[in-house]
Design a protein around this nucleic acid. Sequence first.
DNA 1: CTGAAAGCGCTTACAG
DNA 2: CTGAAAGCGCTTACAG
Lengths: 336, 336
Amino acid sequence: MPTTPRSRSAPSGRVTAAMVAERAGTSIATVSLVVNGKDRGRVSTPIADRVRDAVEQLGYVVDHAASSLARGSGDLVVLIAPDLSNPFFAEVIRGVRDTVGDRFQLVLSVTERGEQPVDADVRRFERLRPAGILVDAPAESASMSASVPVVLLDAPGGPGAVNYDLTAGVQALVAHLRAAGHRRVAYLDGTSRATTFAVRRSLFEQACTTADITVSPVQAQADLTIDAAAGAVAPVVDAWLADGVTAVVAAADTLAYGVLRVAAERGIAVPASLAVAGFDDLPSSSVTAPSLTSVALPGAELGRAAALRLLATLDGVDAPDPALPTRLVPRASTGA
Amino acid sequence: MPTTPRSRSAPSGRVTAAMVAERAGTSIATVSLVVNGKDRGRVSTPIADRVRDAVEQLGYVVDHAASSLARGSGDLVVLIAPDLSNPFFAEVIRGVRDTVGDRFQLVLSVTERGEQPVDADVRRFERLRPAGILVDAPAESASMSASVPVVLLDAPGGPGAVNYDLTAGVQALVAHLRAAGHRRVAYLDGTSRATTFAVRRSLFEQACTTADITVSPVQAQADLTIDAAAGAVAPVVDAWLADGVTAVVAAADTLAYGVLRVAAERGIAVPASLAVAGFDDLPSSSVTAPSLTSVALPGAELGRAAALRLLATLDGVDAPDPALPTRLVPRASTGA
DNA sequence: CTGAAAGCGCTTACAG
DNA sequence: CTGAAAGCGCTTACAG
């Protein structure tokens, strides 16, 4: 810890506007204007050039803390997402980043494994005075309000949220299973408290009822990792088979991978003895053994839509708000 | 845009220390001390309690911008990582987050897909006055210096870096291939400019030379995604086979997945006609068709080691700096 | 066109 | 034990 007195501006390596101003022979006010591109018609060309030269030579960068303090808010956009072990979120992030672009700087925060973003997370990031906050798969959409604009992703029912329209995808999945002759299926749920999982389950159960397919009372759920899913499936897979289940639908592809792994270990033929399907359509779902049938949720699209909505809010204009379409990608794991 | 005059503190919903002080009947200096836990022996218990009550009632949170401006730096730790479509990074992040814990707030930044973190990324985040910056898989470790402590991850050769000892893993892989009778192999490289990829390749080639295995002159490389890998492999797979190649080693598991996919499409038996192996040992590598042999790089360990090193630097103590061990996980894709 | 000055919300010697 | 005040580095009316 340096003991340098604070009054002496010990050259901390940090270049300030004052240093730029001195070198350019102007005031820091002028430096601020030039650096922020607000010099048109306010600063003469020769002076502006001198400032730019000095900035270049000194490697000056506007201090974010000071700037956002003075301005009231900064150019940060915060995206709070659940644990990234689900590759789905990588896609969402990409969509957001490509959309907020250079205008804002995107920073991410991830929750503890298996946790959903909650109110307190939003609160913690308000401190940073971001331009806006995006929350992916929040636990409860109720009280996510803040002093900055907040957009919720994949938070069905919430206001100020962008969502998938899961109906089409789920119905296609159930129709697909029905056509393959399945009449009794199991559902492997996530332990996640994200509302989207409740929606997936209930839409699935509804569709099954309509299609005259029975959902097995033998329940299982797990964290969204392959290991956790395999651990949850191992104890119940025999009960499923004994119950006459011929297909299992998992709330996420990573969960479905766990089913595939247990089936492989037990020598249960997929799809002959047990069909398997998931949600997300992860990139790796095309190379599993067998390749996995999945309801495709385009993550990058979700990220893009959320970012557009935030930008629209910041600009004070109305945002289009279409629910994003989902579709079934049938593969070998259901005999496609 | 609100036109509120700045002088009137329009109740922006933001609670300030002044508001807390007024409610508690003290000064903002006292509020600051209490809120930062520096009140022991400096503030009387009844006053401290009144402050805490007021904080509670008002929901006061210290403003990050103002705090880090006044203090010189804040409690943020920034982790800059390449595009997250490689699930490997999720592990690294988890290791970092679990280690920096509650003392610091972790924020992430990801580069454009296929890009590596560069100097300019570090520069951009210095603005935030973080306590430290972690850079995963940087392009060049040379000039990554900043006004805050920087720790490089997976940046072989750099000073202030934490790394894997790839030797053991690579040698085990090559010995494994040799034992299975392979004498001519191909290497599928990543287009990534991260130095770790150069190291992987050169260690592999060295080990092959020693083991009297020939590396095919038929070259291929791709972005670290399954699609990109499949696209790069498709045009060369016949040439590999024609060249007498019996095994292909990919610089990352995601690349190896691309090989598996092309092999499946072409009806090339794995491992009978072509053995496949990768680096990373991703969770999904246990469920691919066939399951993938891989050099395991424990991502969470890397993140943990880097975070410990940063904490040590901040505390001014020496950091232990063991290279992290790697090992081979043999699976069906090489006939294990 | 230009700069002095107030203010953003904190933290921290310093003086009581 | 407590508070007034300076200072962190900017931005932005405002007065020249």
